[in-house]
């Protein structure tokens, strides 16, 4: 559509295409694609930071060990503060989610890279995993009384059925907003960067201005990458708290 109006060739969504890496055109279930590549790189990067960084086990940490420890205690404190003390059991799970999302987001900011978390399919699986875990956990720990989460006893009796309906709807909208928030943020930021970059190519000498804009947006995107990983994780903790203590 861009060609028709102005003559630029900007394809902001091309960067999200899933491509087979080893030849071939079709993307089957077991095809090695750029998704495979970047997820593997994410796993390697997280392992480098957390496993290799902490291999010294030094009492006085080195720089890389400090990074690993800061990440550890940051997420640990978040889980403890938000989900409560008995939420610490699920800390490895939440840490895995946080590190995976954080590093996917950050690696996605490298030029020519592929952002796995910008895909609804990926974030939907992440959010669905959280949703299913939390719901199953709630029923396993509290049985049918987990349903009291939707029955707000502090409200007047007449309002309770309506509130219950709203609560149930909002409960089922959670995974939707949880996943779309992350994918949407990643997709939007990258598309904006790409659009500005396209302007830079088309404007010739005046391309300096879009390049400055890209720089600024890139900084914002760094911030957004970290914040979205944080938000995804803290919402997971909030949902976990609901499952552990449904009676508020």
């Amino acid at each position: 559509m861009a060609e028709e109006s102005g003559g630029f060739a900007i394809h902001p969504m091309d960067q999200f295409i899933v491509r087979p890496l080893l030849g071939g055109d079709t993307v089957g279930m077991f095809t090695i694609t750029n998704v495979t590549l970047w997820m593997t790189l994410t796993v390697i990067a997280v392992s480098l930071v957390l496993v290799v960084g902490s291999r010294g086990r030094a009492l006085v940490p080195t720089r890389s060990q400090s990074i690993a420890e800061v990440l550890y205690s940051f997420v640990y404190k978040m889980v403890e503060d938000v989900a409560g003390h008995d939420g610490v059991k699920y800390f490895p799970y939440i840490m895995t989610l946080f590190m995976f999302i954080l590093f996917s987001n950050l690696l996605g900011l490298l030029p020519w890279s592929f952002t796995t978390t910008s895909h609804i399919a990926v974030t939907a699986v992440l959010a669905a995993a959280v949703f299913i875990t939390v719901t199953v956990l709630g029923f396993v720990l509290h049985g049918a009384s987990f349903l009291k989460l939707f029955w707000i006893t502090s409200a007047p009796l007449a309002l309770r059925p309506i509130l219950a309906l709203i609560e149930v709807i909002s409960y089922f909208v959670r995974p939707l907003s949880h996943s779309i928030r992350l994918a949407g943020n990643m997709m939007a930021g990258h598309a904006v960067v790409k659009v500005f970059a396209g302007f830079a190519g088309a404007l010739g000498l005046f391309g300096v201005l879009p390049i400055l804009a890209v720089t600024a947006v890139y900084g914002l995107e760094l911030l957004v990458s970290v914040i979205q990983a944080y938000v995804f994780t803290i919402l997971t903790c909030v949902y976990l708290r609901d499952a552990l203590h449904p009676h508020h």
Binding site: V18, V27, V35, T116, H119, A121, V122, V125
Partner: peptide, 9 residues
């Protein structure tokens, strides 16, 4: 592409 992404994820 969904099965592929979900599998690798």
């Amino acid at each position: 592409t969904f099965p592929n992404q979900v599998l690798w994820l």
